[in-house]
Design a protein around this nucleic acid. Structure first.
Lengths: 337, 337
DNA sequence: ACACCCCGTCGAAACGATTCGACAATCCCG
DNA sequence: CGGGATTGTCGAATCGTTTCGACGGGGTGT
C-alpha cells in the first residue's frame, strides 16, 4: 500500500505538505503543488480512509436510512437513493446504507462509532420515534419528509399540500364539481405518513373553497379492492366526474375498475395522479400527473447536509413546488361527446 | 466521546484487555469479562470506526455495487439490497452503496482507500469490464450474476438456465407443443446481461428436446410493443398455446395484449412468468411463475463474502434452483371448454 | 537599512483503537 | 516439591493521516 510518506519522499517534501496540498487548508507554492500532484498521480496514492477519519474526525461518509421493505412505492425510493449517492459523490462523500429496521439504535451506532458524518433519513412518519433522538444527536441530519413536529430539524420534501391543491385545482378549472381522492392503503394513514395526510388536506381544503363535493378514500393496491372502491364511490356519488389518485401501484387497477364500471376516461371521468412520469406516460390512457421530483429532493438533501457539515445554518423547512403535467386523462367536465 | 481507555479505567484493566474482551481473540477470565462488559454498557462505549479500521486494517464495511438507473426491474434490486444490508448487519458489517456509474474507478477507490473489506457486485454483464479488475483487486468480491468468463471469481445467482427449462417443462407436461419466450427489451440482450441469455438457452434447449415448436422474442415494456409482439406471434404461430414471459414490467401488458387479440388465459393460452410472487399473485389472472429468490441470493452472497474474508475458500459458482409455483394462468393444452 | 509580517514548509504530537511479546500466577504431573 | 506448560493480563509499538506551532526567507513600509 502506498502512503503519504511515499508521496512525500518522491516529491521531496514532508508528509504534512502533501496533506496540505490535498486539503488546500494552507497555501502551497505552485511548484510544490505540481510536484506533489505528479507524485500522487504516478504512485496512484489514495489516503487511507480509516487513518484520515481518525486524524480528522471526518469520515466522508453519509448514512442514508432507507425503508427497505415497506408498502411505499419502491422505484421512487430507489430514485432517492440514486440521487443521494450521486450527489454525495459530487461532494467527495460516500453513502452508507442503513435500514429502517435498525431504528434508533442504528442512529446511535452511527453517532457513537463516528462511522458517518451525517444522516439522511427517508420515510419519516408524522409521529416518528427517531425525531427526538435526531434533535439531540451530535450528528447533523436531514429528513426527507416531515414529522408533525419539525422544529429543530432540517426537512425537505415535495410540497404535498400544494400537490393536493394543484390536482383538485386542475379539475376545478376544467369544471368538475364532484371529485374524490383515492389515497394510500389505510395502514399508511394509520401509521401517519405525512405526505398522505398532507395531500388529503390540500385536496379537501381547495375542494371546499371551490364549493366542490369531495371524498377521500384509502385504497389497497389489489384488483379486488380497486373494484370495490370504484363501485362504492360511484354508488355513493353518482355525480362523480373527477378523481385524484395518490397511490402508484393502485393507479392502473383503479383506472381499469372505473372503466369496467362503465366510466370512460376522460369523457366520463377525469383522472389526475401523483406518480412518476414514466408510469403516467405508459398507462392505457396517459395520465395527467404530478411527479415526485426524487432526484431534486435527493440532491438538495445532500446539499443541505453538506452545508450543515460546514457549520453553516440552513432553513428548517424546504418545500419543493409541484409541477402538474396535463395528459390525456383529464378534460373539461360536460356531457360526453 | 467515550474511548477504550475510559472503559479500561472504570473496569480496572488495561485497554488491551478491553480490546480482547471485545474481539475474543484471547481468553479472558469470567470475572474480568463481566466487569469490562458492565463498564462498556454503563458508559455506552462503541469503538471508533476509523481507529479500529486503522489499527486492524478491517473496516467492517462491505461495498454493494448497484445499478441505480438501469432498465432492470427495480423492486428486485431493492430486495437484493435489503437482504444484503440485513445479512451484513448479522455479521457486524455495514453496507456502503456504490453506483454502477462509478465503474472500475469506484472499485479501485474502494481498494486503495481501504474503505471497505469486500465487494458485492450486482447486475454483472456477460462481458463485464470490471471482471478482470475484480480478479486482480486485493479485495475479495462476490458477484450476483455470471459473466461469460467466471473463472477466478465467486458468483451466485438463480439458475436461469434451469429456470427456462422449468418453465417450458411445465408447459410441456401440460401438453403444449408450440410455445414462445418473451424476454427483456433488445438492449438487455445486446449489452449481454447473462440471465436473459441463459433463460433463453434453457428454454430453447428443453423445447427442442421435447420436440416443441419454440420462438424467442424480446419485448419492450410498452403497451404498443406488447400488442405488436402478441399480434406478430399469433400471426406467425397460429398454433401457439403457451408463453413464458421473462420481463416483469411487460407481463401485464402482454397478457392484456393477448386477451385483446382473442386469447383467453388460460383456456386458449397458458402463461408462465419469471417475476416476483407478489406481481404474479396480483395479476388479473394469477400467473404461474418462478420467483427470483432475492433474499436468499443476497444473504448467501454476504455469507460467501464473509467466508472469503476469513480466508476460507468458497466455491466459484453457486446456483440456486428455481421453484415454479403453479397458478391460474396455466392449464392443460386442449380444446377450450 | 531596520523592523515587521506574511508565505511556504517542516517536525512532532495527536487521533483511538489493535496486537505482539513479555510476564506473573496458576496448574498439572512426575 | 519443583519444572514446564498454560492462562490471564499488561505495556508499548503501530496503523496512516491531520493539524498545530514554529521557523526561515523574502517582501513591504517607513
Amino acid at each position: 500500500m502506498v502512503k503519504i510518506t511515499d508521496v512525500a519522499r518522491r516529491a521531496g517534501v514532508s508528509p504534512s505538505t502533501v496533506s496540505y496540498v490535498l486539503s488546500g487548508k494552507r497555501s502551497i507554492s505552485a511548484a510544490t503543488q505540481r510536484r506533489v500532484e505528479a507524485s500522487i498521480r504516478e504512485l496512484g496514492y489514495r489516503p487511507h480512509a480509516g487513518a484520515r477519519a481518525l486524524a480528522s474526525s471526518r469520515s466522508n461518509v453519509l448514512a442514508l436510512v432507507m425503508p427497505l421493505r415497506s408498502g411505499i412505492h419502491v422505484p421512487v425510493q430507489m430514485q432517492f437513493a440514486g440521487a443521494v449517492a450521486t450527489a454525495a459523490r459530487g461532494h467527495d462523500h460516500d453513502v452508507l446504507l442503513l435500514t429502517q429496521e435498525e431504528g434508533e439504535d442504528g442512529l446511535r451506532r452511527m453517532a457513537d462509532s463516528a462511522l458517518v458524518d451525517g444522516l439522511i433519513v427517508m420515510d419519516v412518519q408524522l409521529s416518528d420515534a427517531r425525531t427526538p433522538l435526531l434533535r439531540t444527536l451530535p450528528l447533523p441530519s436531514v429528513l426527507i419528509g416531515f414529522p408533525a413536529e419539525a422544529g429543530g430539524l432540517t426537512c425537505i420534501d415535495l410540497d404535498f399540500t400544494a400537490t393536493g391543491e394543484s390536482c383538485v385545482g386542475h379539475l376545478a378549472h376544467l369544471g368538475h364539481r364532484c371529485v374524490a381522492l383515492l389515497g394510500s392503503p389505510p395502514e399508511v394513514y394509520v401509521r401517519g405518513t405525512g405526505f398522505a395526510r398532507r395531500t388529503a388536506a390540500g385536496f379537501t381544503g381547495v375542494a371546499r373553497r371551490y364549493g366542490m363535493t369531495s371524498t377521500v378514500l384509502p385504497c389497497e393496491p389489489s384488483r379486488a379492492a380497486a373494484r370495490q372502491t370504484a363501485d362504492r364511490l360511484l354508488r355513493d356519488h353518482p355525480g362523480l366526474t373527477g378523481i385524484v389518485v395518490h397511490n402508484e401501484p393502485a393507479l392502473p387497477l383503479l383506472m381499469e375498475a372505473f372503466q369496467r364500471a362503465g366510466m370512460r376516461i376522460p369523457q366520463d371521468l377525469s383522472v389526475v395522479a401523483v406518480c412518476p412520469d414514466e408510469l403516467a406516460e405508459n398507462a392505457a390512457v396517459p395520465v395527467t400527473s404530478v411527479a415526485i421530483p426524487a432526484d431534486e429532493v435527493g440532491e438538495r438533501a445532500v446539499e443541505l447536509l453538506m452545508t450543515k457539515l460546514n457549520g453553516v445554518a440552513v432553513p428548517e423547512t424546504t418545500l419543493l413546488s409541484p409541477r402538474l403535467t396535463p395528459r390525456a386523462s383529464t378534460t373539461v367536465c360536460g356531457p360526453a361527446s
